[in-house]
């Protein structure tokens, strides 16, 4: 698939939360504005567009990825999961029950990343948790409640 520099557009099918959606893609488009502007999936936030904050985290083939750094055209034929696709997941509940949410702007990114963490590492120790969650910034909570939320899910899933 080749697109002309910046001007050309094509219709591309993306597999998002288990459904195929046709979207219009420029070669320079990252996945983030496509999700947000064309599909109304605004759970992924745009807070730096530079891979520095994790607010835009989605899963691509079950691996956490920055939607702001993933070229949309490269996600054709991949399976994309956004926060909207994780409804009623244990991690969402854990964030609510552990008071890990204040303004909620970092929350979708954190939940998606933490969900992937517990699926990839059901026995994650503190070092692994730290390595995974350093990619996300929360400016409100001080991380304590987020730590408790993630650990509560790890505990139940390893039991």
């Amino acid at each position: 698939m080749k697109l002309s520099n910046g001007k050309g557009k094509m219709v591309a099918p993306l597999l998002i939360n288990g459904e195929i959606h046709d979207v219009i893609v420029r070669s320079a488009d990252t996945l983030l504005p496509i999700l947000r502007e064309q599909l109304g999936l605004t759970g992924a936030k745009q807070a730096c567009q530079n891979g520095d904050c994790g607010a835009c985290t989605v899963l691509i083939n079950n691996q956490p990825s920055h939607a702001c750094l993933s070229l949309a055209i490269e996600t054709v034929n991949q399976s994309i999961t956004t926060i909207e696709g994780l409804s009623n997941s244990p991690m969402q509940e854990a964030f609510v029950n552990n008071w890990a949410i204040q303004c909620g702007y970092c929350t979708p990114g954190f939940i998606v990343n933490s969900h992937a963490l517990v699926t990839n590492h059901p026995n994650a120790d503190d070092n692994i948790i730290e390595e995974w969650l350093q990619s996300n910034i929360c400016r409100c909570t001080g991380y304590e409640e987020i730590k408790m939320a993630v650990k509560s899910v790890l505990k139940t899933s390893s039991e």
């Binding site: 605004t42 909207e84 008071w99 949410i101 909620g104 702007y105």
Partner: peptide, 15 residues
């Protein structure tokens, strides 16, 4: 419990 927590966890709040 905060009245906004569930909606925020779902990523459904529109900023």
């Amino acid at each position: 419990q905060r009245i906004d927590a569930v909606e925020k966890a779902a990523g459904k709040v529109k900023f």
